[in-house]
Amino acid sequence: MNFQYSFSRRRFLALSAAASSSLIMPGWVGKAGAAPLAAIKEEDAIIAFGLTGPVSDEGWNTKQNEGAKAIQAAFPKAKTLVVESIPFSADASRTFRQFVQEGAQMVFSTSNYGDFFASVVERSPEVAFLEADGRRVADNLGWYYAAHWHPTYVLGVAAGLLSKSGKLGFIASFPVPMAISSSNAFMMGARSVNPSATLQVISINSWFDPQGANQAASALIDNGCDFLFGVMNEASYLQVAEQRGVRAAMWSSDMRRYGKNAYVSSIIPDWTAFYVDQVRKRLEGTWSGGGQTLLPLGGGIDRDAWGETVPAEVAAKADAVREKIIGGWSPFTGEIKDTTGAVRVKAGETLDEVALYNWDWSVEGVSGLST
């Protein structure tokens, strides 16, 4: 299935219509009707992946590597290059340049490396580039991500029902839109069933720092939080939750074996179909830049199976919300206030997918993130 077009038509068209003013930075607008890049024989194809961490993290990078393996399985004559743990520094530019020098015709940047990536894209017009969590497009560049705020809201509902203290904790990497939208959706889901719930956020300035995540988890629990969530690429805070007798929800993979009593669920992206589809287009000569893709709930992003200690009635209530969202209902409808109490979304208004993707302010009840 081509996920670029399976996304809810109404939402995807709204996203595309708003993109020029909300998402695309000056100088990066692809030409209308730009010609696709030339076709490639499968045996000549080189597809490259730049990862933010080790493929063994059982989180984000494991899932990205699964996408690379799916490409290799679908196109066995092609060559796949995977480089792990690329730092957010000039070393990233060197790595992406090396991909081009080695003949890669398609490069996946599995995180937003900003100008470290952009400088290589601009100098390589014959190479197709795709950037996860990107904001820029060009004739040879598109971005992709997943509408993770929808399953996160569902997990927030479960958290609100399961928490005894009403104090929830969130371990964030950086105060970026991904973490802000995730923490906001989680808080809003929790408050839909527990209006007095609060969410304390600690940012550890890394996507992969087990020691930092451990320390943040312990601090949150010491402060009374009895449910942890976050966007880390490994299972450290789940292990702390298991040891301390609280619950936790995770990102990217089923990690319940690290804390079967604590584990509630996980946000699970599946990039494989999208990646295979993009490579197929590149080989066929039908791929062109400018694409902007958000994988939808139930079609590339979803919750994991519920943990064994989650009561059936909690799972049922949360899943009823999930079905409503899949059916077209949005939980991100006003009135929505920020942390100062100011109304940011008026009653009856709904945040569209562009606003959710670029969310840069925290909702009422969240503390610890810059807004």
Results as ranks from 00 to 15, higher is better:
Val314Asn: 00
Glu364Tyr: 09
Val107Pro: 00
Leu130Arg: 06
Ile326Asn: 00
Leu81Ile: 15
Arg257Val: 10
Ser265Met: 05
Val345Arg: 04
Ser362Cys: 15
Phe99Ala: 04
Ala172Asp: 05
Ile46Gln: 11
Asn223Ile: 01
Glu42Tyr: 05
Leu228Cys: 05
Tyr275Phe: 15
Pro76His: 07
Glu131Cys: 12
Phe227Ala: 06
Asp304Asn: 14
Pro210Leu: 03
Ala70Leu: 06
Leu13His: 10
Glu84Ser: 10
Ala73Phe: 07
Cys225Asp: 09
Gln200Pro: 01
Pro331Tyr: 04
Tyr258Lys: 01
Ala320Ile: 10
Val366Gly: 06
Ala262Thr: 03
Pro151Gly: 05
Val121Ser: 05
Asn65Phe: 15
Val193Gly: 04
Ser182Tyr: 06
Met1Tyr: 09
Phe229Ile: 06
Pro125Tyr: 10
Asp209Ser: 13
Trp60Asn: 04
Glu242Met: 02
Trp149Phe: 10
Ala316Arg: 14
Asn184Gln: 03
Trp287Glu: 07
Ala128Lys: 02
Tyr145Ala: 14
Ser85Asp: 12
His150Asn: 15
Leu356Asp: 04
Lys79Leu: 10
Ser181Pro: 00
Ser181Cys: 09
Pro36Tyr: 10
Ala318His: 02
Ala19Asp: 13
Gly33Pro: 09
Phe116Ile: 09
His148Met: 12
Ile71Thr: 07
Ser183Tyr: 02
Ser206Phe: 00
Trp60Ser: 06
Asn2Pro: 14
Val366Pro: 06
Leu351Phe: 09
Arg303Met: 13
Ser203Glu: 11
